[in-house]
Write a protein that binds this DNA or RNA. Structure first.
Lengths: 227, 227
DNA sequence: ACCTGAACACCGTTCAAGT
DNA sequence: ACCTGAACACCGTTCAAGT
């Protein structure tokens, strides 16, 4: 009856930073980082590319904001009542799973500098490290180590899914390919990498990720005694 | 006298993969990752963009090859006669310094997947880890942890120099900016990050990087006993 | 076999003009 | 204040044509 509220192609909600970021996340999740352009985004939002610039500074701002939104969700889903060690382990696994589900978030997180998404993670890791008894003067180095490790894993995962996407191969097939390439390396020059080829096939990403966290955690432990 | 050998604009050496990669490194070092385009590269080589594609598959191939060249130099400069621990520390510092000198290499390394530059590093770290007494079944996870940590630091350094370049600020000023932003965060929601703002100003990148390596190394140590 | 350079199909970003 | 969409200044990559 009411023509005004029927709306054909015209969006009913007005544009907003939140709506833009939400749409960006949908595009990133479905088509990856290369699928997100100001044209694809403005098409999804039924507007022009220029309109987005009223709410978003530039593409880097958009990526950081999209990343921040999912980091916030991940971090808020964490239980607060745990021991420091299990708190760190659970947080790390949460970040890992987040990066697995949203591969673009890994590279976005690394490019975010000291902005909000990093702050959110820092704000969770820090108190756990403090509760572990690490002296204030060493906390920055310790927290950095945990953070850098998580980011390194995430960024490499992101790179791998990117490679897999472009080459029309799945993640597991990509690992198969790397393993095969390694096993064909010159034994004289690359004996170690060759020997790792079979381990690469059998390994469990998530488990190895946690093993790295545990390595750092027990490094923190032994540091406390000799301090 | 001899017009043929005087050569005006015309290059005398013919194009080759090596010459292209060498020129790419020069551009990357002087103008950063965004300065390297097939146009700028072909201009430096006094040829057309299409010519490069006869020797190089695509831009990702070019970046990986450029990265591999400087990783090879770094790794070859390492002394071989050291204890495992100091070997790992020296290698890690070598990689760190390399990434500081060539910020583009950090992101290139991360996007290289399991290709040559990674293999070179693996081939150095692996034997040290083996000599440390880590059982074969745990070596992949251990080597991965070290590698991921190094890549995480490098990629973040790369991102920071990129941010600094685009914003016309130097690296140190960027850190000042982050520190200032952190000290203005809401104390109720971000107390920990706020408290780290001052430490961020005083810290030493290289020292903290090494502290992280040492954390992992002593984690490996304590794992050996409870194994 | 190797090189040339115009052309194609895109990008992020800007900006006069509208409402 | 907010949106439109054409235009600008780029990209990576391809490919017919040359040598």
């Amino acid at each position: 009856m009411n023509k005004k509220t029927q709306g054909t192609q015209r969006r009913d909600e007005s544009l907003s930073r939140e709506r833009i970021i939400e749409a960006a996340i949908e595009i990133l999740d479905s088509t990856g980082e290369s699928g997100l352009t100001f044209r694809s985004l403005s098409e999804k939002l039924a507007t022009g590319p220029g309109a987005i610039y009223w709410h978003i500074a530039d593409k880097s701002d958009l990526l950081t904001a999209a990343c921040d939104a999912i980091v916030a969700r991940t971090v808020d889903a964490q239980a607060r009542d745990t021991t420091p060690k299990s708190g760190i382990r659970k947080l790390a696994l949460g970040i890992f799973d987040m990066m697995e589900a949203h591969p673009w978030a890994g590279s976005a997180l690394i490019r975010a500098g000291g902005k909000m998404p990093i702050v959110r993670i820092l704000e969770r890791v820090g108190p756990h490290v403090d509760a572990l008894g690490v002296p204030k003067s060493k906390q920055w180095a310790t927290v950095s180590a945990l953070l850098n490790y998580m980011l390194g894993v995430g960024a490499q995962n992101a790179a791998n899914t990117l490679l897999a996407r472009s080459g029309e191969v799945r993640r597991s097939e990509l690992l198969d390919g790397v393993s095969a390439a390694w096993s064909q390396l010159d034994p004289a020059n690359y004996p170690y990498t060759r020997s790792m080829a079979s381990y690469l096939l059998a390994h469990d990403d998530r488990k190895d990720f946690l093993a790295g966290i545990d390595l750092i955690l027990s490094g923190i432990d032994s540091g406390r005694n000799t301090n």
